[in-house]
Design a protein around this nucleic acid. Structure first.
Lengths: 189, 189
DNA sequence: AAAATAAAACTAATGTTATTAGTTAAAGGG
DNA sequence: CCCTTTAACTAATAACATTAGTTTTATTTT
């Protein structure tokens, strides 16, 4: 076995620091210069932990997807049917509200087709599939339903974050109405 | 009247060039350096047309929203009800497919609360409201429905663009099923 | 037609950034 | 105690946005 001094926590510390910068100052402020300053090291030293800015973005995407999953998974425990879908929906948008930078990083990998990124995303998809299984959708309809749910949740979160919803109308009410309409519509046919 | 030499077409030429760069090479390649090179001028000269990179992003957002509106508006002519909603939905995602960079720029303004940006977006919202009016939703439900439709369309487009839909399943079929489920669900209650 | 004026181009310079190359310190495994 | 790996460092480079000050260009006005 080759020697490996104190790896494991190191990279996670870095990602946490990067996540804080992203949440507080915005994703565009996550530069190697700012990240190094926050960690008390020099920018070139970061190349020992990931392959440049692109490598950081990839690791942040995976880290963010895992964070999201950690919040989604427990929300769906002990509930089923409509209630379960509403539960993970609320958990999803609340995560995006609480961690706007980390959430944004979720979709900012240089190559979203990358195997590691896809693998992290697969867990979230599987969770959605399980929650939607109660509706007993036939064949491909279950997969279309997963796409619909993800589209709604991501679109809603992204638009809310970028100030796309201007009107004075309660956002949580909107989400509940939208989700209920979608699952009722999927169930109907 | 003060002298104004050949303004009017100038800025639109610049935005078209920026849009081409965004569509072909990605939004991150829309730099002042690349844009100036494409236009055959030096980077500092661009400051005569907009206020730096932030100013360009704002103008590109407005330009992109207007482009989107130009494609959406005619698609809803001569149709109504479900057919109209499906028509603008297809027009929306097809625009994002054909102009991924310009579409992305739509939500990349430094300040989405900016009055000019909001004003451009308002036209798209009004169009959605008109199309959904056939469903005779009561009170706030019409506004919630607009939010739902926008969430679906933006989420679907963004996820498709970033490779978020991995599975081998026809995307146009997904969109039709999702939209139909949503409007049927909204109508039901 | 000539002069005045305003827009839009330019050069030069600055500060920030990511990145590479080569080097040094440090820590765990044999 | 030595070896190897990791992770830090310094120094240097290239690309970028941006500012300041200047010159060209073209239209408007006299």
């Amino acid at each position: 076995m080759s020697p490996r001094p104190k790896v494991g926590l190191e990279i996670n510390e870095i990602l946490e620091a990067a996540g804080e910068i992203a949440d507080v100052f915005g994703i565009q402020e996550v530069t190697l210069a700012n990240l190094a300053k926050k960690l008390g090291i020099r920018p070139p030293s970061l190349y020992n932990h990931f392959d440049g800015l692109g490598g950081l973005r990839k690791k942040m995407a995976i880290y963010g997807i895992n964070c999201l999953y950690e919040e989604l998974a427990p929300s769906a425990i002990g509930v089923s049917g409509d209630e379960a879908v509403l539960a993970i929906s609320n958990a999803y948008v609340n995560f995006a509200r609480k961690h706007p930078g980390i959430y944004e990083a979720t979709l900012m990998a240089p190559d979203m087709e990358d195997e590691d990124v896809q693998q992290a995303g697969a867990k979230v998809v599987e969770l959605s599939v399980r929650v939607l299984q109660a509706f007993e959708l036939k064949g491909d309809r279950a997969l279309h339903a997963v796409r619909g749910l993800r589209s709604i949740l991501h679109g809603f979160s992204a638009l809310e974050q970028s100030g796309g919803f201007k009107m004075d109308l309660d956002l949580n009410v909107s989400l509940e109405i939208i989700i209920k309409a979608f699952i009722n519509g999927m169930r109907a046919s």
